[in-house]
Amino acid sequence: MSQGAVGNDVVDLDDVSPASERTRQRFIERVCAPSERELLAQSDDPRTLLWVLFAAKEAAFKLASKLGPVPVFAHRNFIVDRAPLAGAPFSVTLPSAVRARGTVDVHGRAIHAVAWVGEGEPHREVIVGPDARAALLVHLGLEEARVVRAPRADAYDGLGPPRVEVRAQPHPVDVSLSQDGRFAAFALVPVRA
């Protein structure tokens, strides 16, 4: 039985820390693997590509946290195999050596990266606004649906990934939520009940 799982991340390009620009080279060395630094060196737009890579890694981390124990979040250990330009698929290798599929969409000043395992391709949306949870529930259009997070000891905030319940029963989708600056985003894949 194939179970899908998904992670997503949105980056507001107008909300990037200016310090990241000032300490840019050290930031790159901290976040990017050598192969990714090569992609940046070859890129016509390395500033945008850096944030595309960052979003892809964040999405991959959220995915990896669903596939096993929460890994050490060292960005450079989540390796993107090619410059993930808008609409073009890429792969990201997780620290566990699992290879996840990925995609990046650029919506104006929003970068939205999604990483997943399983069949098909995730549904994904970016909204202008702070509430990814509400946007997800609107999309699902289910009565008495809610998004919950169970306690999880190894998570940074003590809570596990979001799950959808309908009338207190698990709904057969895996979801991921993200918020940054002006934007919120979600992605979901169906899972077999």
């Binding site: 820390s17 310090a19 990241s20 901290r30 964040e58 960005h75 940074y156 905030d157 940054d180």
Partner: peptide
């Protein structure tokens, strides 16, 4: 909590480590 209470995102956390 740096992430939860101060609402610092993970990119800024990298910057903080560098600082």
């Amino acid at each position: 909590s740096i992430l939860k209470d101060l609402k610092v995102n993970s990119a800024r956390l990298v910057d903080i480590v560098l600082e």
